[in-house]
Computed example of a mutant assay.
Amino acid sequence: MSFTSTAWDIFSKSVEDYHNNDDIDFPINNPYEKGSLEQLLYAKNWIDTVQWHLEDIIRDENIDPVDALKLKRRIDASNQQRTDLVEYIDSWFLQKYQNITPKPDAKINTETVAWAIDRLSILVLKVYHMNQEATRESASDEHRAKCTEKLNVLLEQKNDLSQGIDFLLEEIEKGNVKIKTYKQMKMYNDESLNPVLYQKSKN
Rank of each mutant, 00 (worst) to 15 (best):
M1K: 10
M1T: 12
S2L: 11
F3K: 07
T6V: 14
T6S: 13
W8A: 13
D9G: 07
F11Y: 14
S12D: 13
S12N: 14
S12C: 08
Y18Q: 03
H19R: 13
D23Y: 06
D25G: 02
N29V: 11
K34R: 10
G35C: 08
G35I: 08
L40D: 00
Y42S: 06
W46P: 00
D48M: 08
D48F: 07
D48Q: 15
L54Y: 15
I58C: 10
I58K: 12
E61I: 10
V66L: 11
L71H: 10
K72W: 05
D76C: 00
S78E: 13
R82Q: 14
T83R: 08
T83C: 07
D84H: 03
D84N: 12
V86A: 00
D90Q: 06
Y97R: 01
I100E: 01
T101H: 02
K103I: 02
K103A: 09
A106F: 05
K107Y: 08
I108G: 05
T112A: 01
V113N: 04
D118I: 05
R119D: 14
R119Y: 09
V127C: 09
H129I: 06
N131I: 08
Q132E: 15
R136C: 10
E137V: 11
S138W: 08
H143P: 00
T148F: 10
E149H: 13
L151R: 10
L151Q: 11
E156K: 14
Q157L: 14
D160G: 00
I165L: 12
I165G: 04
L169W: 07
E171Q: 13
I172R: 02
G175D: 07
T181Q: 09
T181D: 03
M185C: 04
K186G: 06
Y188S: 08
N189G: 04
E191C: 02
N194W: 00
L197P: 04
Q199C: 01
Q199W: 05
K202Y: 09
